[in-house]
Lab assay of single mutants.
Amino acid sequence: HHGSGALAALHADGPHAGLPVTRSDARVLIFNDWEERKRSEPWLRLDMSDKAIFRRYPHLR
């Protein structure tokens, strides 16, 4: 199991509170979210491209 239990660094406060600090933090969040959702949506594709990251977390651009 590759990303399970990996912890992402999140901004503690300010405008980005609760959001990932780096792209690799964002990838951890996206992976964990996908892993949760694919139980009920097995067709869901995992997209951890930069484009997917920016779409979801525009502050990382």
Rank of each mutant, 00 (worst) to 15 (best):
D33M: 09
H1A: 09
S4F: 10
T22K: 09
S49N: 02
N32F: 07
W43E: 13
L19M: 05
S40M: 07
S49D: 03
R37T: 03
S4M: 13
D47I: 03
A8F: 09
F31I: 05
R45M: 09
R56L: 13
E41I: 02
D25C: 02
D47M: 02
D50H: 07
P58S: 02
I30Y: 02
A26E: 01
E41N: 09
H16I: 04
P15L: 14
T22A: 06
A9D: 11
A17F: 11
D25W: 04
E36R: 13
L19S: 03
L10R: 06
R61E: 10
D13W: 08
P58A: 02
L44E: 12
K51Q: 11
G5V: 12
V28E: 04
F54W: 09
I30M: 08
A6G: 11
A8E: 04
M48A: 05
G14F: 03
S40K: 09
R56I: 12
W34S: 01
R45I: 11
R55F: 12
I53M: 05
V28N: 05
S40P: 03
E36M: 08
L46E: 02
R27I: 06
S49W: 01
A12D: 07
E41F: 05
A12C: 14
E36Q: 09
E35D: 12
T22D: 05
D33V: 04
E35K: 15
S4V: 15
L44R: 05
L10M: 06
A26F: 01
D13S: 15
I30Q: 00
R61P: 05
E36N: 08
R56S: 06
F31D: 15
D13L: 09
D25A: 06
W43P: 01
S49R: 04
D47Q: 03
F54S: 06
D33E: 14
W43K: 08
L46N: 01
P20Q: 02
M48T: 11
A26H: 00
H2E: 12
A8P: 14
E35T: 14
E35P: 01
T22G: 07
L29V: 09
D47E: 05
H2K: 13
F31A: 06
H59E: 01
R45Y: 08
H1Q: 12
H11D: 03
D50M: 06
H2R: 08
G5L: 15
D13V: 10
M48N: 03
V21P: 04
G3F: 11
W34Y: 12
F31H: 07
W43T: 10
F31Y: 15
V21W: 02
S40R: 13
